[in-house]
Design a protein around this nucleic acid. Structure first.
Length: 257
DNA sequence: ATGCCGTGGAAACCACGA
């Protein structure tokens, strides 16, 4: 079973690429981020015609997350991250699919740092860590997949020295990610490729993809009940080279049944 | 060192992203 996270950077602009990629790779479960579409403008029929059940939480212009499941309908558990009724951003959705609990997240970017956007990112991270603490010890298999907007270590960025003051790489953010992992989560890509240079995002400008000036910021975390089923993990980096590509590439795990 | 590009929505530019 293949589970993928893919920040599409606009479901409207990306729909042709998304449908092509679904057809070529037939993933079983897909977590999408940055729909940038209001709830009523999500292309539900195109996704269903491609063979996927889907739930989504849209928002006008920004954010937005979705969970797709091939041949079945995800059963929604929640569509907001608990802990702040004032938070109006569509950044989290959670469902039960094929015996897994799937959390799909789009963590705030946080730039510029310091500032109110960075404060929001740190608060969101704290809430997420609290929620993850409830999930990690769940006897059911759980996967938390999404755009974390966190560069975990120096190995995960092409020039770490240029990113030390950035909201994706600042010490507080890396420490928060470490706290999350230390709850007992497995960072799938790093577990199977401890030394490799593997990026999931490349800027649109300065020929970042051509130079491989990338970041690893899209992650798939497995709880202990699921970690033993991890058999492969990688990035479909070729998709980043397609015409009209998102700046992120699909990032995936293969799980034994 | 830098949104230099891309998207969406409103308005013919701007906010936002990482």
């Amino acid at each position: 079973m293949k589970v993928v996270t893919y920040n599409v950077n606009g479901i409207g602009a990306r729909l042709p690429n998304l449908l092509r990629w679904l057809g070529e790779t037939t993933p079983d479960i897909v977590c999408l981020q940055e729909l940038k579409a209001p709830q009523e403008k999500f292309p539900e029929s195109a996704i269903r015609d491609a063979g996927y059940g889907v739930i989504w939480h849209g928002q006008k212009s920004w954010n937005g997350v979705a969970i797709l499941a091939r041949g079945t309908d995800p059963v929604e558990i929640r569509r907001v991250l608990p802990g702040d009724p004032e938070d109006s951003h569509s950044r989290y959705i959670e469902a039960s699919v094929r015996g897994l609990i799937v959390g799909c997240l789009y963590l705030p970017n946080g730039n510029p740092a310091p500032g109110p956007k960075y404060d929001y990112k740190l608060r969101w991270l704290d809430r997420f860590i609290q929620h993850a603490a409830q999930l990690v010890s769940n006897p059911s298999p759980v996967i938390l997949a999404g755009d974390y907007n966190v560069i975990p270590t120096e190995r995960d960025v092409y020039k770490p020295e240029r990113w030390v003051d950035d909201a994706l790489f600042r010490v507080e953010v890396r420490e928060a990610f470490t706290r999350l992992i230390q709850q007992g989560w497995t960072d799938s890509i790093r577990k199977l490729h401890p030394q490799a240079t593997l990026y999931t995002f490349w800027d649109y400008f300065r020929n970042a993809y051509g130079r491989d000036a990338g970041l690893r910021i899209d992650h798939l975390l497995l709880n202990p009940a699921l970690a033993g089923r991890l058999v492969a993990a990688n990035v479909d980096r070729g998709v980043r080279g397609w015409e009209k590509a998102s700046d992120h590439a699909p990032t995936w795990v293969e799980l034994s049944e």
